[in-house]
């Protein structure tokens, strides 16, 4: 049991075989930093409209894997399929074009810039000669925030004045507005209070309601377990488990994380 999908990897030239509910398939990904192997033969699949929890200890390779998918690092080996087609993601721009958006913990927002300007950063709507359509930016940002259940009075307020949960809300509103297909959240609850974390989880379920797939990176299993439908566990740069929520438990998952690659034997 335990690993329902892990063996679908490497079926030869199967890229033409449609995507049957799969949004992303990463196959046999290797990544080296100098002589350090960060990832070795990792496969990752994300289904359409699912919330996938990517868990593992610090240094397990979660962030590296996700940075390959979002265009920050090239992979040294392996292939990526998006909606059934082979893709080459060389920059964050390429990833964005496909509809892959990443929300990083501290890198998502410019703190001294207003909410509206953050949401439209790099993709500002303009009216003539590139001058921004500020009315539209203000209106659309407040509307989108309201959609995910966040009522803020003023889109001109700078992000620095918001709480941690509200900031995550702004970053998530941005990906909803720009119609992402896959949203990668890198430790979205790491610096938040219990109450704020709960708020962020609600935003994430809102993403799913919009039909957006989510990869939720965390090492807080309790947070992951509340919303993720499937878990992929990395340890020492390798995938050690790929399980649905109903087939596992928090204890079971933490065993994987702690015992790393040997957990396969542990399971048998």
């Amino acid at each position: 049991m335990g690993k329902p999908n892990s063996k679908t990897g490497r079926p030869g030239p199967s890229s033409t075989k449609g995507n049957d509910g799969l949004l992303v398939r990463m196959e046999d990904i290797d990544k080296w930093f100098g002589k350090v192997c960060a990832l070795r033969g990792v496969d990752l699949e994300v289904k359409e409209g699912e919330i996938l929890g990517l868990v593992g200890d610090n240094g397990a390779g979660k962030s590296t894997l996700i940075k390959i998918l979002s265009g920050f690092h090239p992979a040294d080996k392996g292939e990526i399929y998006f909606e059934g087609k082979r893709v080459h993601i060389r920059s964050p721009k390429d990833a964005k074009k496909l509809g892959i958006e990443t929300v990083y913990q501290e890198q998502a927002l410019a703190p001294h810039v207003s909410i509206a300007r953050n949401i439209f950063m790099g993709r500002e709507p303009s009216r003539f000669l590139g001058f921004m359509n500020r009315k539209m930016m203000d209106r659309e940002s407040l509307n989108t925030l309201l959609n995910i259940g966040l009522s803020l009075p003023d889109s001109e307020a700078v992000v620095e004045t918001l709480s941690g949960g509200q900031r995550q809300g702004v970053a998530i509103a941005r990906v909803i507005y720009f119609k992402a297909k896959l949203v990668i959240l890198d430790e979205p609850t790491i610096a938040l209070s219990v109450k704020e974390s709960r708020q962020v989880m609600e935003f994430i379920t809102q993403l799913k309601a919009e039909g957006i797939s989510v990869v939720f990176i965390t090492h807080n299993l309790y947070h992951a377990f509340q919303i993720a439908e499937r878990f992929v566990i990395l340890a020492h740069g390798e995938k050690v488990a790929d399980v649905g929520r109903d087939e596992t438990s928090i204890d079971h998952l933490s065993q994987f994380i702690i015992s790393g690659r040997d957990s396969n034997d542990l399971k048998k």
Binding site: S91, P92, Y104, L109, V113, R117, G122, G130
Partner: peptide, 20 residues
């Protein structure tokens, strides 16, 4: 919009980069 990008770059270069 270029002004917005200048502010974003100075305020949080990583965020600006991540936004393309």
């Amino acid at each position: 919009k270029y002004g917005n990008r200048i502010f974003a770059t100075g305020d949080n270069k990583l965020a600006a980069k991540a936004m393309g």
